[in-house]
Amino acid sequence: MKKVWLITGTSTGFGCALAKELISQGYPVAITARHLDQIAGLVEDHDQAVALTLDVTKKDQVRNAVDQVLDQFGRIDVLVNNAGYGYFGAVEESDEEAVRKLFETNFWGLSDLTRNVLPTMRKQRRGHIVNVSSIGGLTAFPAFGYYHATKFAVEGLSQSLAKEVKPLGIHVTLVEPGAFRTDWSGRSAVDRTQVISDYLETAGKRLKASHANSGKQAGSPELAAKAIIKAVESENSPIHLLLGKDAVKNERIQLESVKEDLENWEDVSTHVDYGNEDFWK
C-alpha cells in the first residue's frame, strides 16, 4: 500500500517537482498552495491526487487542510513542510516587519502544520515528517542572516522532534539543499529595503551573485524529488539529507571549522566548572 503524502508549497520549485514525481508514481497525494489555480492542473485526471488551498500562516486553513486530507484518504503517512521563501540583506539592513513575516512562514507555519498532523501519526503509530531546511540551516553566509535564522530554528525543532517521536514509529528527515534551479533567489525572494554602504563588500556582493546565478544553478529539483522519495521509502531514513555537491562541500567546511575551534579552545571550554578556579590564576 502506497503512502499518503501531504505537501505544502507546491506551486513552484521543490514542492512542484515532488508533487509531479509522486503523482507520476501513483502515490495518493494532497498538494497545497496559497492560490489553488496555480496547482489545480497538476491533479487533473488523477484520482489519487487532490489540490487544496493552504496558506501555512493561517491556522484555520492549516486545520481545514489536514481534515480534508483525512476525509479524502483516511490517513496521512508523509508530511512535507516545503512552503517557504528567502530574504536577502545584511542583518542591519533588514526590515523587522518583513523578517517577522518570514518567520511566520518558514518556521511557525511549519510548526503549526506539524502539530496538527502529529495526533494522526501518533494514532497510526507510523508516519514521516520531512522538513525542507537548507544548507543554510547548517552553515551561514553574508546577506542571508535572517533566512539562516529561520532554517537553524527548523533544524533545532526537527532534531528535538525526531527524538520525541521515534518511539512512536514516526520518522523525521531534514532536507538540506544547496543551490537548485528554483525561484528561491529569483521572483520568490524578498530583498532588503535599505542599503548600507559598509556592507557592499560582504552582503552586497553575495546578494548580487545569488541573483545573477538564479536560473543557472546546477541542482535539479526533479532529481531532488527522487532523492526525497528514496529517503522516505528507505528502511534507514536519514535525519539529515543534504542535496547537491555544493551542500556536501559547504557542510564539510563547516564541520572542519567547528572541529578546529573545539581543538584550539578545548582547554578553555573544559575549565569552567566549580573546582577549576586555579586554571584562571
Results as ranks from 00 to 15, higher is better:
residue 136 G to N: 10
residue 133 S to V: 09
residue 144 F to G: 08
residue 109 G to V: 09
residue 140 A to T: 07
residue 109 G to E: 12
residue 142 P to K: 11
residue 113 L to H: 05
residue 116 N to Y: 13
residue 115 R to G: 06
residue 113 L to C: 06
residue 138 L to I: 00
residue 125 R to L: 09
residue 112 D to L: 07
residue 112 D to G: 04
residue 117 V to M: 07
residue 148 H to I: 03
residue 127 G to E: 05
residue 141 F to P: 00
residue 137 G to F: 11
residue 110 L to I: 04
residue 128 H to D: 06
residue 121 M to C: 02
residue 113 L to K: 01
residue 114 T to G: 09
residue 119 P to G: 08
residue 117 V to G: 07
residue 123 K to H: 14
residue 143 A to K: 01
residue 109 G to I: 08
residue 111 S to C: 10
residue 127 G to S: 02
residue 112 D to A: 14
residue 143 A to D: 14
residue 116 N to Q: 14
residue 118 L to T: 01
residue 132 V to M: 08
residue 140 A to Q: 10
residue 140 A to L: 04
residue 115 R to N: 13
residue 125 R to T: 13
residue 125 R to A: 13
residue 115 R to A: 15
residue 133 S to K: 14
residue 142 P to S: 05
residue 139 T to S: 05
residue 128 H to W: 04
residue 124 Q to T: 04
residue 119 P to N: 06
residue 121 M to T: 02
residue 116 N to M: 13
residue 138 L to V: 00
residue 139 T to N: 02
residue 148 H to R: 12
residue 146 Y to E: 11
residue 143 A to C: 11
residue 135 I to T: 02
residue 131 N to Q: 09
residue 142 P to E: 03
residue 117 V to Q: 08
residue 112 D to W: 00
residue 128 H to V: 01
residue 128 H to A: 05
residue 121 M to E: 10
residue 132 V to S: 08
residue 147 Y to S: 02
residue 135 I to F: 07
